[in-house]
Design a protein around this nucleic acid. Structure first.
Length: 616
DNA sequence: TTGATTCTTTATTGGCCTAG
DNA sequence: CTAGGCCAATAAAGAATCAA
């Protein structure tokens, strides 16, 4: 995390920052005496800047002894164990990695421990597992922590600048997070960037970047992963699994998983059920401290590791019809190594064997382009066609053939080509940054011979390409399949304040449209902060609504909320009737084309506001 | 550093669904 | 029947995977 960070700086930050929103550790941290914060910071330093002086509290003598022993060879098991225990005790398990620990040990003992990697991992796991009971004991503190968190919340509400401070304030973040909360409480909180809560927006922006710096801290999940692979049912491991499955379940839109997760987390049920019945709103604001960064990473990891459908050719190559992308890459490299397929002249090039030729369509492929080509052979689970292959097709259509007319219709489903299309994108708008025009693979692969070309063509026919002829991309079943009975939630029209109405040009429209239109305006007026596009630099009109000259896009919704009020049933019905009578292309009622009168600004808003009162 | 992809973070409401 | 989780839209950025 902080290889580049001055440990002393970390200390400063940690002790200076009001830990008001120290996410994970809120409960404890709040109560921490300054001295304790110091200790924590040292822990952080110890974790990332290994060295005798950074060695956390216990037994420096041991370290010295061990160093002596190291001169003779590797430290013995007991020494190693003690040292690891020390390191772990001083580290945030969500951010520390086995590698970081090993490096620290190497420093400490003055020997290379690469050969001991497995053993060290094993010891780490054992120590983590043996720490479990302590975790349970800490559960009782949860409520206190939560209470404290509530207090912070209030504080933060008063201090608007600290809004973004606690990324972990996602209340709704379910059991997996709660668990990590409990665990993190017990662990040291070593991560300086985690501790430095929120001071101001700029700080937070910096924090974001600093968080990113915690590079070499491949989180302890690595360790957990290993243990999972071994089938060792560690708590941490199951937690990770639960978290990833939770994510998956969400992606799939299944409530069943949720319950499974609940079962999984039996020790959490009390805290979960003890939550006031008040709904999401309260849970959302009730900041459940949770580990701020690690779950994110974990989920990112889980995302990458989702099993994907493989084309027949690729399946034949790797020996499985489904596999996560990284595993595919790994497997291919396994094969490359096993068969010594790397070009001796330039080891970045891989000489394809027959199976690989079927996939890559050439006799030689650059390692970097390998992934690109693989994309043609990897598909979303359960899909018959891949989004990106569609995109590719469209692109290739542009410069090659026009035979596939239906592809043009498929376009809306392709999120890519326009990094910023304000208009209708629906299913998966994510991954904006990836939107790069596909570089020709040929740039890295050598020109194909006719024979190879033919083979490539064949591979395409056999592989992913043929899938595209299949039925139109079944967009997220949840997206349209559910169609959530008659437009509740975001599609339910709401009334907006005169100011907002003036900006949007409509006084009644669905919440989703409010946000959508706002973004159109933001783009039109180029209001995004060029240095950090997550922030909106409000123009006078927008500032009158937001109340700030600059607002993070994530927080915009909250600010806008002040200008939104529910409509009466009658008003909603009227709105829908109007929308139905005047359907627009978007599917959602669009006020651009069918505004309820252009002079609705003030006049229309009065009644709606009044009716809104009725509703409430 | 290359490549692609998926998912997360934030905030909001309310219908739908499941489990108890 | 109730409680509570999921999901819908919207944005940018970054993490995760793997290899040399």
């Amino acid at each position: 995390m902080a290889d580049s960070m001055d440990p002393s700086a970390t200390t400063t930050v940690a002790s200076d920052a009001q830990p008001a929103s120290a996410s994970t550790n809120a409960g404890n941290t709040i109560k921490s005496e300054p001295a304790e914060s110091e200790t924590l910071s040292h822990s952080a330093a110890a974790e990332t800047k290994p060295g005798a002086d950074a060695q956390p509290k216990s037994e420096p003598a041991d370290a010295a002894d061990a160093a002596d022993a190291a001169a003779a060879g590797l430290p013995d098991d007991a020494t190693l164990r003690a040292a690891i225990a020390d390191i772990l005790a001083a580290s945030d398990l969500d951010s520390v990695s086995s590698r970081a620990i090993r490096k620290q040990l190497e420093q400490q003992f003055g020997v290379k421990l690469g050969s001991q990697k497995d053993a060290i991992d094993q010891i780490i796991m054992e120590i983590i597992m043996s720490a479990e009971p302590a975790e349970g004991a800490q559960d009782d503190d949860d409520d206190d922590g939560e209470q404290d968190q509530d207090d912070q919340e209030d504080q933060e509400d008063q201090d608007e600048d600290s809004e973004i401070a606690a990324p972990a304030k996602a209340g709704k973040k379910k059991a997996a997070k709660k668990r990590s909360h409990a665990e993190s409480e017990q662990r040291g909180r070593a991560d300086g960037s985690d501790v430095d809560g929120g001071e101001d927006e700029d700080k937070d922006e910096a924090d974001q970047n600093e968080d990113d710096d915690d590079d070499d801290a491949k989180p302890a999940k690595r360790i957990r992963l290993d243990s999972d692979a071994d089938g060792t049912p560690t708590r941490s491991g199951s937690r990770r699994a639960a978290s990833s499955s939770a994510k998956k379940s969400r992606a799939k839109g299944s409530g069943r998983h949720k319950s499974a997760e609940t079962v999984d987390s039996s020790d959490d049920e009390s805290s979960a059920s003890s939550k006031p019945a008040a709904k999401r709103k309260s849970t959302a604001t009730k900041a459940r401290a949770s580990s701020a960064d690690s779950p994110q990473r974990a989920r990112g990891w889980a995302a990458s590791n989702k099993d994907m459908e493989l084309s027949p050719a690729l399946a034949a190559l790797v020996g499985a019809p489904q596999m996560a992308r990284p595993k595919v890459v790994s497997k291919i490299w396994e094969i490359v190594k096993a068969e010594n397929l790397q070009d001796p002249d330039d080891r970045r090039y891989i000489r394809c064997n027959d199976a690989m030729k079927a996939v890559f369509g050439s006799a030689r492929v650059h390692m970097f382009s390998m992934n690109k080509v693989l994309s043609d052979h990897i598909f979303k689970n359960g899909e018959t066609t891949s989004t990106k292959s569609r995109v590719k097709e469209e692109e290739s259509n542009d410069d090659e053939d026009d035979e596939d007319d239906d592809d043009a219709e498929a376009k809306p489903a392709a999120p890519k080509p326009k990094p910023k299309a304000p208009a209708a994108k629906s299913a998966s708008p994510k991954r904006a940054p990836a939107a790069k025009p596909a570089k020709p693979v040929a740039a890295l692969t050598r020109p194909l011979t006719d024979e190879e070309l033919a083979r490539q063509l064949q591979a395409e026919v056999n592989g992913g390409r043929q899938r595209r002829a299949a039925a139109p991309l079944p967009r997220k079943p949840a997206a349209e399949g559910k169609s959530r009975g008659g437009g509740g939630g975001f599609s339910k029209p709401v009334g907006v304040s005169p100011e907002l109405a003036a900006l949007l040009g409509a006084s009644e429209l669905p919440r989703s449209q409010v946000i959508k239109k706002l973004w159109v305006i933001i783009k039109e007026r180029n209001l995004q902060d060029p240095t950090n596009k997550q922030f909106i630099l409000c123009d006078p009109q927008l500032e009158a609504i937001i109340g700030k000259p600059r607002v993070q896009m994530f927080k915009m919704t909250r600010e806008i909320e002040r200008h939104i009020h529910p409509l009466s049933k009658e008003a909603i019905a009227a709105y829908r009737a109007k929308a139905e009578a005047n359907p627009t292309t978007d599917g959602a009622p669009d006020d651009d084309d069918a505004p309820e009168g252009d002079g609705l600004d003030e006049s229309a808003d009065g009644p709606t506001a009044a009716t809104a009162m009725d509703t409430q």
